[in-house]
Design a protein around this nucleic acid. Structure first.
Lengths: 372, 372
DNA sequence: ATGCGGAAGTAAACTGGTTTACCAATTGTG
DNA sequence: CACAATTGGTAAACCAGTTTACTTCCGCAT
């Protein structure tokens, strides 16, 4: 794009051997003795190009290939009024949640015309707003919002993944939090747990409210008490986005410091569950002998933690792919696309067992179990 | 960018209330009774704009603000021949390595003019090559290559982060692998380990060779035998990029199946170390009582693993920031920027201890230690 | 000989900015 | 008072494509 003052490397593309700069439509036209119009029509293979005899078509195509012609995206976008650009926004690159969603998005977009900007806002609303403006300036046609909820409509099509309060302006891909939480608590209840502690998600973040409401509903249904003393909310730590596990550890420490007994802990997500497990160990409690722990998300490290984490599996990659799919369809035609809601499932691993009171053999040595 | 057929949401920007479409320089000029030239010069605050009296300047600026004028990036890039676009390429979004480097890059680029494309290639050379071409077509001015090494020069400035064999066409940000490996092995040797197993990195990936050579050199110096039977190379699993821990688990299983005794294991990186720890447990070996494990990278989960992982800390975020810095400098002026090499350090946690032979009190109950 | 239709292709306007070269009017200076 | 310099600004070319509305030529039927 920019002129290079000195090329130290040998030119490795035909296009660059040409005349120092990239070959343009005009130069190509001159070489072929045809007009820019003709070349453009043929290169783009528009219906009108059928006017030209096969021979001319081949001549143009061949020449374009030989000279390594690549249309200038900026000129093209300017004329066509389409950019094929998508903006992705996430709070951070995370410990497995965001990255897995991102890979799902990439997978779906791989063989399309679209290219993605990705930016992160570290939970700063103003940064989020700023990114949206920058991306719009850059010409993105649509937005994929992972766990990110702007206060105003971005003014372009947007698909939110796992955000709360789906606003009217966005399409939403989410999982059935109530179903997942129901499964998790039922699992603990079935094992015999009655004293369950809860780590609630961050204020105003993604699925916090929905999951919390599901906890309240499920517990009421199952006759389990939700004790405020056994409830703690995650607080963000600086620098945001890099210490999620630490947040869970601190939450569990606070919980323990209150002195109220609990035999199980349901964390907001896996990473906070893992941090909490660390805190429990530090306080001399064994998992799952003393305290059973359940996470949410099923990120990769959940399965290699020790003990391997029982959790609610979210099809993260599929959610990313679904979101990308919806956005692409929305951008292609103004087709009316609908929200997608997926079902998570419970994955039982080694971090949950019956509560200590239910088995008076608490000194049993921990068996080495397969962790998956 | 594209015409919206029906706007269901209320217009939230002045620019959109205008005439259905975004306001252009021309419209702005007409409203002000000035020429496009004048507006352009003033908006861009070029030196030549000093010609215009302060009063005119303010009038233009104010009006632009009021009408929510935002220059069209495509038109601008076309004329200026600068795009302020950077392409980032990584194998995948990973479990902590890539994401931390990415956040370092983002941090450095946050208050600059640059915007980033990010793409991943899942270790496919052809996909990597394809991404480079796509990004070049899209007009990126430079590339940040995380653990990704194209076979040919990309033809634009590039900074590689943690890649092997730095080619002449790129600037390189890396850590001193030899130093790190030296620290790791010395640590094990000081504890009394002599039978050390090694998990070598993937064929052709990033720091594999450098670390492997460092292992050979250090072991020779310390008089430690590098036994082929205690050496295993990581193999990629499908779908690539999502099962790094599993790769480490399989490697350790293979190692164990060979029946050769070892008291310590040095893994290529943290995620494979964690997978290996799982395999060791499954085989009934305790970490660190029976086998000490050392990782490399110090990703976040290393510190919350159980036992917390002793590892070589890489300043990942700083490396990302440094790479971005170099690229920006390179793009700004053709300033001659040099490679950056950073020093990692050893972080001793709970996954290493003296070998079983050295302490004949092998039935000691594992003490609960602080994990950081 | 004239008019029609299709085949093959192009001129020119347009996208929305940037930039160079120039102009007209005023002010300053010898 | 003539000439230069300054002030305040603009026309037009340019970036590299897309797109619309022609044109020209030829063969064929009337």
């Amino acid at each position: 794009m920019r002129p290079k003052p000195k090329k130290s490397t040998a030119p490795d593309r035909a296009s660059e051997a040409d005349s120092g700069s990239r070959i343009t439509l005009k130069k190509l036209a001159e070489r072929l003795g045809l007009s820019r119009t003709t070349i453009s029509l043929i290169i783009n293979d528009v219906p009108e190009a059928s006017r030209f005899p096969e021979e001319t078509r081949q001549r143009v195509l061949q020449s374009a290939r030989d000279l390594g012609y690549r249309p200038n995206y900026f000129a093209r976008s300017l004329g066509r009024k389409r950019t094929y650009l998508i903006g992705i926004i996430a709070p951070d690159f995370g410990n497995g949640f965001e990255s897995t969603v991102l890979s799902g998005i990439e997978r779906r977009l791989l063989n399309t015309e679209y290219t993605c900007f990705i930016s992160t806002h570290h939970w700063s609303p103003s940064l989020l707003q700023g990114h949206i403006e920058t991306l719009r300036d850059r010409g993105v046609e649509g937005l994929l919002l992972i766990n990110s909820m702007p206060t105003q409509s971005p003014g372009i099509p947007a698909v939110t993944i796992s955000g709360d309060h789906p606003p009217r302006w966005s399409i939403r891909v989410s999982i059935d939090n109530a179903f997942g939480i129901g499964k998790a608590i039922s699992h603990l209840a079935n094992l015999g747990h009655k004293e369950i502690a809860f780590i609630k998600g961050h204020e105003g973040s993604g699925d916090t409210e929905e999951r919390w409401n599901a906890i309240l509903t499920t517990c009421k249904k199952l006759g389990i008490r939700v004790d405020p003393l056994l409830t703690i909310q995650l607080e963000r730590l600086e620098p945001t986005g890099t210490r999620h596990a630490e947040e869970g550890r601190i939450a569990a420490q606070t919980l323990l410091s209150r002195g109220k007994r609990f035999t199980a802990l349901l964390a907001f997500n896996d990473i906070s569950a893992l941090g909490a497990m660390t805190a429990l160990r530090e306080a001399g409690r064994s998992v799952p002998e003393d305290v059973s722990v359940v996470g949410f998300d099923d990120i990769e490290v959940a399965s290699i933690a020790y003990p391997a984490l029982t959790t609610i599996h979210q099809p993260l990659s599929a959610m990313g792919a679904a979101a990308a799919e919806l956005l692409v369809r929305k951008l292609a035609a103004e087709e009316c696309v609908e929200d997608v809601r997926l079902r998570p499932d419970l994955v039982v691993r080694a971090s949950t067992s019956r509560p200590p009171s239910a088995r008076r053999s608490s000194s049993t040595k921990r068996a080495v179990k397969s962790s998956r």
